[in-house]
Write a protein that binds this DNA or RNA. Structure first.
Length: 162
DNA sequence: CCCTGATTCGC
DNA sequence: GCGAATCAGG
């Protein structure tokens, strides 16, 4: 964003009119972050902020920009700096025991291979998406319940439907 | 999960 | 200085 005097004036004006940062961003074709960032830098009067930041709260985790990608070294030395002494663990090191999968977890993975109902549940591409996975009717890709939804008898359809 | 504004910090 | 990422709340 090239913050020309005109742009800054516009920002000031829209800000003074009480538009949301996102709205100002939309009107100016920039992100709301750019708006709020610039507004902050211009010491524009702060809006009532929905958030309450505790000054005593130690920065959650280096907020802000993501850490830069680690520089890609040409090659990691296989045997890097030989250690003179092993670091002594303060407490006995418990190497992670592979968690025994709970049976419910196992159940969460449907057996795709054979006769599981593949009626989609939820929005494809979203986190909760899954297939029904109840036992499918023989010869059909769906369980009884979903087969009833899937196979609509042509005979039942109204010809004169509007 | 949509929205909000504030803050941090790599660039 | 800039603004994306992230936070934190509605």
């Amino acid at each position: 964003m090239d913050w020309t005097n005109e742009a800054i004036d516009r920002l000031r004006a829209l800000w003074a009119e009480g538009h949301s940062t996102a709205e100002i961003g939309r009107r100016m074709g920039i992100s709301k972050n750019a708006v709020v960032g610039k507004a902050h830098r211009l010491d524009l009067p702060a809006r009532p902020s929905p958030i309450r930041r505790d000054p005593a709260t130690p920065r959650p985790v280096a907020t802000g920009r993501r850490p830069t990608l680690p520089p890609l070294r040409a090659a990691m030395p296989i045997a890097a700096a030989p250690r003179r002494e092993e670091p002594k663990p303060v407490a006995p090191t418990i190497l992670a025991l592979p968690p025994k999968p709970a049976s419910s977890v196992v159940r969460a993975f449907p057996r795709v291979s054979s006769k599981a109902c593949c009626w989609p549940i939820g929005e494809p591409g979203t986190k909760g998406f899954r297939f029904c996975s109840e036992p499918a009717m023989s010869g059909k890709p769906y369980c009884a319940e979903h087969a009833a939804l899937a196979y609509v008898r042509v005979k039942d359809r109204r010809e004169d439907a509007a």
